[in-house]
Design a protein around this nucleic acid. Structure first.
Lengths: 341, 341
DNA sequence: TGTTAGCACTCATCAGCTTCGAGTGCTAAC
DNA sequence: GTTAGCACTCGAAGCTGATGAGTGCTAACA
């Protein structure tokens, strides 16, 4: 049995309806829809075929039909109609990103909020891996008698900071000259190479050995924890509004998954392309999210490093809209962030 | 009618039981408890009295009794037995706070997580008002060709940063000397006074007018938005585990309240004392939280500025434990943060 | 041959009913 | 003053039948 024109039409109508109502769709409902000019009986026959082909499922005998994951796959592959965001909406979204006084991580945070706001689903953004970045500037800023803020600026404009202990009695000027020395030695080095550089610095700088040792330790810790960190989530409570999560336990286990940055990272991992990709239900490898769909896109910071932005929602999510929003935001985010470069 | 010894005993037993089970407590249950040596009938008589006095309520005729807000008030005022945290537990909590490489805001973030972890309720921490702080150090760090990171360190060790545009062609050294000049002019001034200082600087520094103008604007914006920001929440999903929130709509409206930093700020506001305060049900002025209790304590950053840390939970929360945890964390947080000073 | 009207059938949902048991209040005895 | 006994109340849980949305099948129609 093959899918002919009419089957496509009916399947699309069913999915479109189910995305909105979350209720099993009956033949009469489809028949009434403009654009489908057949009687319920005819549609029932087609639905029966579609069920046999694995595109539809029946919760119980006398209920309507529900699209299967296979149906969603077909839907996103062949039946999507790209919807345009209104320019008004684009503007509003863009506006929230461009607060000039925010650092890169602040912009990413805002982007997550904008995403979840625009889609009413849960948004996730993973920052680019630091390892691939190069150091551009290092600076120590005095904070208190024996502490200073170590600031590392990368070529992508990403700023990392950490408080470190410094020997007492170092003046701001002395800290500055140490900063200059550090910048000189470390500039253009990838963050991963910091270790070797520091080792060498430690050998040749007996006087500031303690300070440098501490700085090295801190930087290493930051790099190590990197894989865990820098996952930003927006609108975690958004999904609670959907009937899929009217069961508190389901809601709770979903929220629990969001707490594990590790899982989120895994879920968001994707190949290098900039295209929007869609993973439906079990296509994403995390069992706890098997009744969710995950749509992801990429953004660029600087020249080479890619980050990922994505939306997690029920499999019956509004793919049309989510894709448009992600596509737009991916570009917008890249644009905004490349200004920092 | 007065509350005699036995009524206190029975009320306490009822509340203790209800805190654990969240189910109406019957006379038999109390009678069985060790420490209460009376038959169910006697206890029923007492319960009837307690109900008349407004300390207990009956959901329906044949159900047990439930403590009223008035009962909780009595409970926390007179019946609390202070429980000690095990030293093991104290240590574990303290440990999470003392990552030396974190800035003040990072420590506060961790504290919120520790609080919600230790209590299984939702924790909230409000950072001290910036207005009362004094500037200690100002520094510009080059980020890209035409942007720099403006860093303001206050006397309490709190660091605020913002990205600003700078005229092209300024070298790192030039930025440093401007930083020095700014530090010199602004040191010891309260943040609120920045406006006047900057105005004067603008008059006398024709050459860096653009840079300074931008910096001023950014600082002002930060200060303005201050009242909104710097509210940190931990364990927002924790309450979902309690039967009080098994209704998704209730859960959702609770989570919605947490999103409004403004409301949270209002709820957490308290007088200057360092004591733990408890607001039960409608005693807190936010209608949406009328079936919650809110327990707050203070912590200090630097000499004068106070922040607030608190726990939001159901009115039948485990007050004993929450108070111990808040008391300990208030001190611990003050200790850790005063090291930055 | 494809489409549709008609009809018997299925099954979730809901209202109404009964049963069960936890818990109460009252009374009388200790 | 305390407690045993007992009738009473009322929610929770389970059962029943009515309702209606939806199906599959058959036969008639274009």
């Amino acid at each position: 049995m093959q899918l002919d024109e009419r089957k496509y039409l009916i399947l699309q109508a069913i999915i479109d309806d189910y995305i909105v109502t979350a209720m099993p769709v009956g033949s009469r409902t489809i028949s009434r829809k403009s654009g489908v000019g057949f009687s319920p009986a005819t549609i029932r026959n087609e639905m029966s075929d579609l069920e046999e082909l694995g595109y539809l499922a029946q919760p119980h005998t006398s209920a309507g039909r529900v699209p299967s994951n296979k149906a969603y796959r077909l839907y996103v592959d062949h039946l999507l109609k790209t919807v345009k965001l209104t320019s008004d909406e684009r503007e509003r979204m863009h506006e929230h990103l461009v607060d000039k006084s925010k650092r890169v991580d602040g912009v990413i945070r805002s982007a997550a909020d904008v995403l979840s706001d625009a889609t009413k689903y849960t948004s996730v953004i993973v920052a680019p891996k630091l390892g691939t970045l190069r150091i551009k500037h290092v600076q120590l800023v005095p904070v208190a008698e024996k502490t200073a803020l170590l600031i590392i600026v990368t070529n992508a404009g990403i700023v990392k900071d950490a408080v470190i202990r410094v020997p007492g009695g170092l003046s701001a000027d002395e800290l500055y000259s140490i900063s200059r020395m550090l910048t000189e030695k470390l500039a253009e080095k990838p963050l991963e190479a910091v270790r070797q550089e520091f080792a060498e610095l430690l050998r040749n700088n007996a006087e500031n050995r303690r300070l440098l040792g501490e700085a090295l330790q801190v930087i290493e810790k930051k790099l190590e924890s990197e894989d865990q960190a820098d996952v930003v989530i927006g609108g975690s409570a958004n999904l609670l509004g959907y009937p899929e999560y009217s069961d508190v336990n389901k809601a709770r286990s979903f929220l629990a998954v969001l707490e594990s940055k590790d899982t989120i990272r895994r879920v968001l991992s994707r190949d290098g392309s900039m295209e929007v990709t869609i993973r439906i239900g079990p296509e994403n490898q995390v069992p706890a999210l098997n009744d969710c769909s995950i749509v992801t896109a990429s953004y660029r910071v600087g020249d080479h490093s890619n980050g990922t932005l994505g939306i997690i929602g029920p499999t019956r999510m509004n793919y049309n809209r989510v894709i448009s929003v992600l596509d737009f935001m991916g570009r917008a985010l890249s644009d905004v962030l490349s200004e920092y470069k």
